[in-house]
Design a protein around this nucleic acid. Sequence first.
DNA 1: TAGATTGTTAATCGATTAACAATC
DNA 2: TAGATTGTTAATCGATTAACAATC
Lengths: 234, 234
Amino acid sequence: MIGPTVGGQRAAAVSEARKHSVREIPEATVARLAVYLRILTARPAAADGIVSSAELARVAGVKPAGLRKDLSFLGSYGTRGVGYDVETLIELIRRTLGAHQAHRVALVGLGNLGQALAGYAGFAGRGFVISALFDSDPAKIGRAIAGRPVHDIVDAGAVCAAESITIGIIATPEGSAQEVAEILVGSGVRSILNFAPVVIAVPAEVEVRRVDLALELQMLAFLQTRRATGAVGT
Amino acid sequence: MIGPTVGGQRAAAVSEARKHSVREIPEATVARLAVYLRILTARPAAADGIVSSAELARVAGVKPAGLRKDLSFLGSYGTRGVGYDVETLIELIRRTLGAHQAHRVALVGLGNLGQALAGYAGFAGRGFVISALFDSDPAKIGRAIAGRPVHDIVDAGAVCAAESITIGIIATPEGSAQEVAEILVGSGVRSILNFAPVVIAVPAEVEVRRVDLALELQMLAFLQTRRATGAVGT
DNA sequence: TAGATTGTTAATCGATTAACAATC
DNA sequence: TAGATTGTTAATCGATTAACAATC
């Protein structure tokens, strides 16, 4: 139906529809919507089931005006003088994020980090089910980790198809990341979360996000240094 | 700070550049500088020790113009018609990021994720040494993980001071994150990397970065959905 | 009505991109 | 000089912020 050649045509078509469509929510806003959703679902149901932008913004660590701006991309569902109905808001954000359905995930690389991710409880709570584990190490293949068998990465195509997997997590060493990415894409995966500290090349229709743990520490170290030396201003 | 000036001819250019001295480098640029540094140090030394913006940009997954813009914040050290001297570039980025010295890190919370982080080889390679482990679980305190003893979190003050620790990693359950943050700050930690999916409140002089693994998956799921429905234009 | 809070606007800020003059 | 590549400019794009009119 949708066709694989989305590329250039989409850009033009969408920019027509851009102004009024739910589709053009800024990425920064999407990330914050996920945060709001988490807060709303986690918190004890308030008696009145209402939350104000001031209250939610405080918990989310953003400014009230920014929060309202974010929510405005969902349409106008708040009540002036009152606030937002929590249930409505949850439902609306869920639908917008596609968080009303579970997503099935393949995890490749069961070293230290991979094993931790395989057992990470936070995924299931937000609608992500690790449905298949892969490695290339014969010592790991066939073993069970976090209650799931480790498959040989060469079987990725069959397993991913059987499990309807659309998201892949790469937790392999740096040197294998590109190869694994290609295998995943060939197995039908359309989105990849890459923990290897290397930029992987994928077809344009595949989304990749990278999480670079050491880079986060480097950012912190830099910001700390800037603060420390910044005040002096030689 | 930047060191002895380059030469008489460039005096004007350099003092222009001082306006954007280290303090003014955009965060997005800092993050990419860390990526460039990693690529440069990892790659086999080229025969001529020169790299062009086109080549480095390709590997880093950015555009050449953006890379040159990023490097321009370090001053003008490339050679027109030639490229950048790799050793000079490495040294310059290192100094800018404060990556020439090792940073000592405390890790709190030795569940699945914490154990993986304790053994994560990628930290040491980029100048971060996990110097102390903390938990509050008596079953874990005293045990060794990744070759280091697990301390009681109540001893954080003494241990962090003894080890000169300035960076903390929170890998505890959500419910403990705020309390742990306060203990770390009270122990002299100035920068925190928070893996708990909750926004923690800290004094203004403390830097916090949050890594929310499930949020990354949610972003992917959203972007995927947008692509899939975006092409149709319903 | 009076008080409260949203939704929106306009200004500001910051980052990206493309083009090209400078210059090795 | 001729070719190559940087460094910088200006335009564009995107995100944040504050203020306030709308309205419950």
